[in-house]
Each structure stands twice: as structure tokens, then as C-alpha cells.
């Protein structure tokens, strides 16, 4: 057995190193680029919303989750209820306002002062 091992070519590990690095760096470069993108998005969305509602900076959250096939961009805006008279308080728990159907388990929009928009990226 040892004799066979002696003649066997040692396994090449460099291609594994190369592949691991390429995958990792593609991911890390995407993240460092994305964090900027999210900050920009948050700023621009904020600018649009504040035209119509007085929203606090903390009232808006932008999240991006990366999936293997589809990634999701989640934008959550909190608007003080008295500030939006055109949307009367519903008696029953309302349905979420969304632009695209998504997994019902992921949404938690049971308050009237929340708008959740989900878009696949």
C-alpha cells in the first residue's frame, strides 16, 4: 500500500485554492460594493418619502438578503399614523401593501403605519 502511495502523484491542491479564492472574493467584493449601494438607496428612498410624509431617518430600513437564485431587497418605512389621513385605520388586521407576491411567513405587516415593498433582485 505504501509502495503504491509512493508512486502515486501527490494530489494538486492549488486548483482548489484558486477556486475557493475566486468564490470568496466574488462574494466579498459584492458585499463591499453593496453596503454602499444600500446606503445610497436608503438616502434616495428617504428623499422621495419625505416629500409626502414627515418620516424620521430611523423610520426607514433597507435590507438586502442574498439567496442562491433570487435575492430580496426589503424596504420598511414607518410613518406616524396621524400623518396619513388618506389611509384610515382599518377595523380588521390589514393586508400588507406590496408590489410583488412573496412568502407570507416573511411578512409581518400587521400595523397600519407600515408599508412593505418587496422586489426580487
Amino acid at each position: 500500500m505504501k509502495l503504491i502511495n509512493f508512486f502515486r502523484k501527490p494530489s494538486t491542491t492549488a486548483p482548489v485554492a484558486r477556486e475557493r479564492l475566486q468564490l470568496l472574493l466574488a462574494h466579498e467584493r459584492a458585499i463591499s460594493g453593496k453596503s454602499d449601494l444600500i446606503a445610497i438607496l436608503q438616502e434616495e428612498i428617504m428623499a422621495v418619502i419625505t416629500k409626502h410624509f414627515p418620516v424620521e431617518q430611523e423610520g426607514i430600513t433597507v435590507k438586502m438578503e442574498r439567496g442562491e437564485v433570487v435575492s430580496t431587497l426589503e424596504v420598511e418605512v414607518e410613518i406616524p399614523t396621524p400623518m396619513c389621513p388618506s389611509f384610515p385605520l382599518p377595523a380588521k388586521p390589514p393586508k400588507a401593501v406590496r408590489t410583488e407576491p412573496s412568502d407570507p411567513e416573511e411578512t409581518d405587516c400587521d400595523e397600519a403605519d407600515e408599508e412593505i415593498a418587496r422586489t426580487g433582485t
Binding site: 494538486t12 491542491t13 484558486r18 479564492l21
Partner: peptide
């Protein structure tokens, strides 16, 4: 060692 595939070669590092 790079020739034997035990070490990243020059092309690999440059490409990355």
C-alpha cells in the same frame, strides 16, 4: 512547487 500544482501559480494570482 507551482509547476507541481502545490502552490498557486503566477497566472492564478494575476487573474484573481
Amino acid at each position: 512547487r507551482a509547476g507541481r500544482g502545490e502552490m498557486l501559480n503566477v497566472g492564478d494570482v494575476l487573474e484573481i
